[in-house]
Design a protein around this nucleic acid. Structure first.
Lengths: 193, 193
DNA sequence: ATACTCATGTAAGCTGTTACATGATTCT
DNA sequence: AGAATCATGTAACAGCTTACATGAGTAT
């Protein structure tokens, strides 16, 4: 059996945690929960569910509503094992970030101060929007789903931190204050934390 | 002219900021600087440089070392303009995150407490490794490159925050402490920031 | 009646990585 | 002499998004 993708584990985990689901339901669940750190589109979900079925990690049951097709998937014992192995195994988990706004910050030297502040403001706006999304999107704490809640708190904390960082930088730039560390004797310690 | 990709702007910006460079030099620069928030592989860099050349945003000059081929690129005026437009324009900049370890945290409910702590520890280790990478990889502050330095500080601050968050969660889990917020009346405000 | 949600899927295309191929130059 | 670095590029493939196609059920 080939290595399972991260997205495969996402589907396995979702069905494990939420109980038997259709592809459509999973799609919606992802949109209000893992989307912020692991997205998945329908073009990925449906084929992957089929693959997991033929690999024996999911079972499919056809349960049409009227004449509308509907495939409900459940995790098999083999699937449970695969999920547990993934959760406890430590093989270089994917961490990938593409932050175009931060790239703009990186290149902001040639801009005027006003333009620089705008770049940082745009970065803050983006993270504020994500905070909003997280606040609205994810359902409140439910017993047995402690870690759903914990990773939700992570999202709030993380983007909240970025927003604060941007605010600080904005006011430093606005007041012509060279960000603190740049002149100190040990710049790293001073501002990094 | 088609929309320029983020990676195109990366190359434009790098050459703008560092002066005329070869593809190879850019590749190395990316490895020690933007890689943490905008990666680029040789398989992308070389073709993209050619594309930017034929779009008139870069000029290429052949400067072999001995008989070894060597193409040095510079930013044209048109390229400067494109870069400035990108920096000051605000068209939904890419923000994409794939954090497999956080996905594991999300699904950690079914594990034993020991296993749960291991998952968080692995997450912390990953971010500590990135902190190390950032500390070592990026050159110290140089005049005229304030924003290179600022985004470096961002990396330290960001991953430092995650490491602290993990430490807190690890001790909460180890001591059977239900993460604070879960019982309070307003859980969100309590732990989110 | 109309619009929205439920529900599944495919095809085209873009982005990006990995691995390979090639070979010269420089350092130890 | 041998290893590491400089330097450019391509080909195959993996992963993912977007848009489309299709149509039934449900709510207003």
């Amino acid at each position: 059996m080939t290595e399972l993708s991260g997205t495969a584990h996402l589907l396995l985990g979702m069905i494990r945690v939420k109980g038997r689901r259709t592809g459509y339901e999973i799609k919606r669940l992802v949109e209000v929960s893992t989307r912020f750190f692991w997205a998945a589109s329908p073009g990925q979900i449906y084929p992957e569910l089929r693959r997991l079925e033929s690999a024996g990690l999911l079972t499919r049951s056809e349960e049409p509503h009227g004449s509308r097709a509907r495939n409900v998937y459940s995790v098999t014992e083999q699937g449970e094992r695969a999920l547990h192995d993934w959760l406890t195994g430590g093989s270089a988990p994917t961490f990938e970030l593409r932050n175009e706004q931060l790239l703009k910050v990186f290149f902001a030297d040639a801009l005027t101060t006003e333009e620089q502040i705008d770049v940082v403001r745009a970065m803050r706006a983006q993270h504020e929007a994500m905070l909003d999304g997280i606040r609205k999107a994810t359902p409140p704490y439910r017993p047995g789903r402690k870690f759903g809640y914990i990773s939700w708190l992570y999202g709030l904390g993380h983007h909240g931190w970025v927003v604060d960082w941007c605010k600080q930088l904005e006011s430093d730039l606005a007041e012509g204050r060279i960000p603190h560390a740049l002149e100190g004797s040990d710049p790293v310690a001073a501002r990094a934390r």
